[in-house]
Nucleic acid binder design. Structure first.
Length: 447
RNA sequence: GUGGCCGUAGCUCAAGGGCAGAGCACCAGACUGUGGCUCUGGGGGUUGCGGGUUCAAGUCCCGUCGGCCACCCCA
């Protein structure tokens, strides 16, 4: 068998998980303060949720889904996107009954069968938030503000929201027609991709990367000029709310979004530090999604943030992310005089560790029978602040920073009482260790 | 799905037809029953995998898998 994670997927190893916990913790805490509660949906959905929600013509549905038949012959797909499942859950459980709007967030894996490259994986993690039930521009500004403030809370500076409106069912078709009319005379000189997209996705002609096409696109009509009155008003309102909240944004007609369900607001934030896949989050309004899924019309707005990319940006920016905290204490055992004593010392070390943990310390006791030197080396590598060396007489507690050592047993008799497991001796020594290692910690058990 | 570059020890990399190596890391020991520094010793490899050329293949050729980067598209 092949000892290798599937292509485009990666292990998050013990040395990395502290970074993730930090990022997730900051974002969860912020979302909670915004009044968003977590929602957890299954990692698979009926394939139709994505086909109807995200749209048949999109790349996600057309070629990037992990789709399979279960044993009952149902077509299921790994979660390819975050918003459609949340809306499915909203409709299924009639979450609007608890009062609108629903504010919800999620941190979950997303799967897309795509060719991996910098910042793009077949399994990635999104932090996302949705406001469902409100059509007003304040909702757009609030949820996008949450995303921007989230990046800032992680330490990023100069975050700028790129903002656009893609219109609605009234004005978007008119705009698309105007776009085609503009590009039609240039069809012969556009790149192959643009010629293909001329019919299928004319908005995409606006963000072609070919220099020649870009020059042509520069003269194309812009969506903001085609917005119908209600869309215009909404777009203005979103900007007004963002400005009032002090969220930096820039109107960018090139923000187009690939998914069918977007209406009106479309937004993204980019970073120049992570290669070609440079969007840290993308989001927008999806007033048509609920109907596409077969529910009653319900407006919504939200975003999805790629946490792998955010971690990459933090790394590239040199923003320190906390690592694992080292243990307070390592309990070592000194060489014993005979195997019987060695066994007793080992058992005592683990019993003491257990008691000290209940008193609030983080404690390592070795599970490898090895020399004191080797135990010290290991304790040093763990970064343990103190080492308590158990032997038959002195019980020295060593401060690994200062090399200072204090003997915790008042007499060999104490040490023997400890070795026997005499409850009062054990408790007295645990209080002494706790007081030394963590002066502020409670000396009594916490349970 | 397309293209470019690249796969040698846990990591970073040498060896470019002729004995598979170094540094770091790891393990043990010495210097004190006690870590970092230093010293000594040790374990580790079907050179991604499969085939071909050759007396001889990490080395040349083909295929395949994987990684990186870019396109497409997205987070």
């Amino acid at each position: 068998m092949e000892l290798r994670a599937p292509r485009g997927m990666q292990d998050i190893l013990p040395g990395q998980t502290a970074r993730w916990e930090h990022v997730e913790g900051v974002l969860r805490d912020l979302a909670r303060r915004y009044g968003y509660r977590e929602i957890r949906t299954p990692v698979v959905e009926h394939t139709e949720v994505f086909q109807r929600g995200v749209g048949e013509g999109t790349d996600i549905v057309e070629k990037e889904m992990y789709t399979f038949l279960d044993r009952g012959g149902r077509s299921l797909s790994l979660r390819a996107e975050g918003t459609a499942p949340v809306m499915r859950a909203f409709l299924e459980h009639n979450l609007g009954a608890a009062g609108l709007p629903l504010r919800a967030y999620y941190i979950c894996p997303i799967f897309r069968y795509d060719r991996p490259q910098a910042g793009r994986y077949r399994q990635h993690t999104q932090f996302g938030a949705e406001v469902i039930g409100s059509a007003g521009p304040a909702a757009d500004a609030e949820v996008l503000g949450l995303a921007v403030r989230g990046l800032e809370a992680l330490g990023l500076e100069g975050v700028e929201l790129h903002l656009n409106s893609v219109g609605d069912a009234v004005c978007r078709p008119q705009y698309l027609a105007a776009l085609r009319e503009y590009f039609r005379p240039y069809l012969g000189e556009l790149c192959d991709d643009c010629r293909r997209r001329f019919e299928t996705a004319p908005l995409r002609l606006l963000d072609c990367k070919h220099e020649h096409d870009r020059r042509i696109a520069a003269g194309a009509p812009r969506m903001p000029a085609f917005l119908c009155d209600p869309c215009r008003e909404h777009f203005d309102g979103v900007q007004e709310h963002l400005a009032a909240a002090g969220i930096a944004y820039r109107v960018d007609p090139g923000i187009v979004r690939g998914l069918d369900y977007y209406t009106r607001t479309a937004a993204e934030v980019f970073s120049g530090k992570i290669g070609a896949q440079n969007a840290m989050f993308g989001g927008g309004r999806y007033d048509g999604l609920a109907e596409q899924l077969g529910g009653r019309p319900t407006p919504g707005v939200g975003f999805g943030m790629g946490l792998e990319r955010v971690l990459l940006v933090l790394e590239q920016t040199g923003i320190a992310v906390p690592g694992d905290p080292p243990p307070d204490l390592f309990i070592a055992t000194a060489p014993a005089q005979n195997p019987e004593q060695a066994r007793r010392l080992g058992a005592r070390a683990h019993a003491l560790a257990d008691g000290l943990r209940r008193a609030g310390l983080s404690v390592h006791a070795d599970v490898m029978p090895r020399s004191l030197t080797a135990q010290m080396r290991y304790a040093n590598r763990l970064g343990a602040r103190f080492v308590w060396i158990l032997d038959a007489a002195r019980l020295p507690l060593r401060d690994m920073g200062t090399k200072e050592e204090v003997a915790l047993a008042a007499s060999p008799a104490d040490a023997e009482a400890l070795e026997r497991g005499d409850p009062s001796a054990v408790e007295r020594l645990q209080r002494m260790v706790t007081a030394r290692v963590r002066p502020g910690a409670p000396g009594k058990e916490r349970g």
